[in-house]
Design a protein around this nucleic acid. Structure first.
Lengths: 110, 110
DNA sequence: ATTATATTTCAAGTACTCTTGAAATGAAAG
DNA sequence: CTTTCATTTCAAGAGTACTTGAAATATAAT
């Protein structure tokens, strides 16, 4: 991941509605949530929710699967993790100080 | 930190020039770098660099201190850490799966 | 086939962000 | 106090993002 790609992903996270979607999908677990239920949960119109879900899906932060009439969206931790790793490990060179600020440790000790 | 505040901070990270600034300031260490040197390093005009440095400073990702004619900017890991913590601990509820994707562990085991 | 449900797509309007180059500010040196 | 150096501010223009409501699509039920 380079700066340009990371910047595009951060742009997707730079919206309160989309962060609420992420929170809701994390709560929901692996099954995910129907688009309509997400819209209700984040208090947005169907078209507005769809707009944000499209952004999240295109960037890979969420996946989607149709089940009958509904479309279920699920969180994709891999993509989130890749972006966080870019920021912490690459951009900030694995700074110990930054990890301390997050109450985190590297799990691969060398 | 709530979704709205986090979204504003992610917006600041959603620009390749600003990510390059962060990378340069992490490399530079606690002394930081002069505005002019940052402009050269990220390959931007002085006014363009200043525009991005202002965004980074206003959001708290960097600090600044005048020294004679130059202004030195320094990285602020606290602010970065707070945003990463919001995303991982709050928004994603400290998801083990997400931490694994970042090769990270919580440092406070309960 | 018709109707109902779930979701997306589209177009228009508004607002924000970024870039550029010129002008303004601040600080030091001659 | 004039000049030089470092940086910021400003205004204009181009591009991008978001919201809204209406229309279109897809699936299932009657």
């Amino acid at each position: 991941m380079n700066e340009t790609e990371a910047a595009l992903l951060f742009a997707v996270l730079s919206n309160a509605d989309r962060l609420k979607v992420i929170r809701a999908l994390v709560e929901a677990g692996p099954e995910g949530l129907k688009a309509g239920d997400i819209a209700v949960k984040i208090n947005a119109s169907p078209s507005r929710a769809s707009f944000h879900l499209t952004a999240l899906a295109q960037s890979g932060f969420v996946g989607s699967k149709r089940k009958s009439r509904s479309i279920f969206y699920q969180i994709n931790f891999n993509r989130l993790g890749a972006l966080v790793s870019f920021l912490m490990e690459d951009c900030c060179k694995g700074s110990r100080e930054l990890r301390d600020c997050c109450n985190m440790q590297a799990s691969d000790r060398n």
